[in-house]
Amino acid sequence: MRARRRAPLAAAAAVTSAMMLAACGSVGESGGGAAGSDGNGGGDGGQIEIGLVPKVEGISWFQRMEEGVTSFDEDHEDVSAFQTGPDSEDAAKQVAVIEDLIAQNVDAIVVVPNDPQAVAPVLERARNNGIVVVTHEAPALAGTESIDLDVEAFSNQEFGEQMFAPLAEAMGGEGQLVGEVGSLTSETHMAWYNAGLDYIEENYPDIEVVSDQPYEDNNSDSTARSNAQEILRAYPDLAGFVGTSVSALANFAAILEEQGNTDVATSGLSLPSIAGPYLDDGWITHAQTWDPAGAGYVSCYVAMQLVNGEDVATGDDLGYEGYDDVTVEDGIVSGNATMLLESGQFSDGEYPF
């Protein structure tokens, strides 16, 4: 492998502590893969084939992830890594893409599931066919027969609390709050949302969560925009909004700007290029992220290691900023890759992604 890649946000974004678990063991013996046991790699001419399946193609988040997959492919001459996914956030479509990769007899499949439980059976079938399976954003599948390892950028509980804490402060500790997720079946989106609700309940009893469950946008900008308009009509006294999808926060901020509404504090997941202008102009109160390219790069790295019969262990450097001292416990590879985005951070208008 060539020199370790550094996330371009390293100097500008705060990388916070996350999920430093007390594990000291290693994981990897269960990942046989198409060529795993002899450590020689698979595919034609010894080249390892790795297919990464995102939740959906065509949105900024997964376009950035594909850059990481491409970088990994360029860094490893013995690997052919590529990204292929469904054209909408649909678990059945994602299953069809995975089935196609199984038919191609790739050496490893990396998946960012829309619904981890919905794809679990087809992933188990892939493993039964000798294919290494790695997931991202699917810790519930760790330790099951469906996957070899799951890769997480941080502790999901801490990430959720970090998302809600500055929002509650900006709300003055009181008022109505509404949330939005990509989907109710998105394991990580719901983990952040529920961790944040627990934090609010414990620390801010005067904040009222007014919807029984979060709105869903299916990672669609048009749906998120419609949701924002509906929410502001339904709750004219709204004081806070939190969005766990990139579409949610950005489109809510855009509607606030269009309406000139300065009464609602906002927080959630975004990308620097999307959040930067809204942060600078005050339409987003707080935003945080991790680099999708890093997640794509590292997930492919883990898959390669398992195909080659190598362990992934606590303390390993997996070649990307935030994953240079990972923790491995209970089938989950955890990095320290949270990035906090701030107003004025990109005053030159040059966004890393």
Rank of each mutant, 00 (worst) to 15 (best):
A140P: 03
G309D: 12
P277F: 04
G322R: 08
G28C: 09
F72E: 03
T185I: 13
E66F: 01
L238Q: 11
I48C: 08
A81I: 04
D90V: 02
M171C: 08
P236L: 11
A34P: 00
R5P: 04
S186C: 15
A239C: 13
A91V: 10
P54V: 06
Y320T: 00
M163I: 11
V132C: 07
D75V: 11
Q63A: 06
Y297T: 00
V15D: 12
V112Q: 06
D330L: 08
D150L: 02
S155W: 08
I48Y: 10
P352W: 00
G33L: 08
D44L: 13
A22W: 12
L149A: 08
P54L: 07
R6C: 04
W283Y: 12
G42L: 05
S30F: 07
Y320V: 08
Q104N: 09
D73A: 10
F346G: 01
H76Y: 12
R5T: 06
H76N: 15
A18L: 12
T338K: 11
G196I: 07
V110T: 09
I131D: 07
D325N: 15
V333S: 01
V110K: 13
G41F: 12
I332Y: 02
V27T: 06
W290K: 04
W61A: 05
A224W: 05
D150C: 08
P116E: 04
G240R: 09
F154L: 13
E258D: 15
R225Y: 13
V209W: 14
G309N: 04
N308S: 09
Y215V: 10
I231P: 03
S37I: 01
G51R: 11
S146H: 03
G331T: 10
P205R: 13
K93N: 00
G51I: 14
Q288T: 02
V106G: 02
A170W: 03
I102K: 13
I102W: 08
R2S: 14
S267E: 02
I147E: 00
Y278W: 07
D100T: 15
G240K: 09
A138F: 01
L271W: 02
M163G: 04
A12S: 08
I59E: 07
R2I: 10
T338Y: 10
Y297E: 02
L197N: 12
L279C: 06
Y204K: 06
E257H: 09
D330A: 12
V97P: 00
D87L: 12
G42R: 05
E201R: 15
D78I: 09
G173H: 11
E350I: 14
E202C: 10
I131S: 08
G322S: 09
Q104E: 14
E321I: 05
V326G: 04
D212Y: 10
T16A: 15
Q94W: 08
D348P: 06
V333N: 04
V122M: 09
E74D: 13
V181N: 00
M65P: 00
P116F: 01
E174A: 14
Y297P: 02
L197D: 09
G25I: 04
P277R: 04
G182V: 09
G31N: 00
N336F: 05
I255C: 09
L167Y: 14
C24E: 12
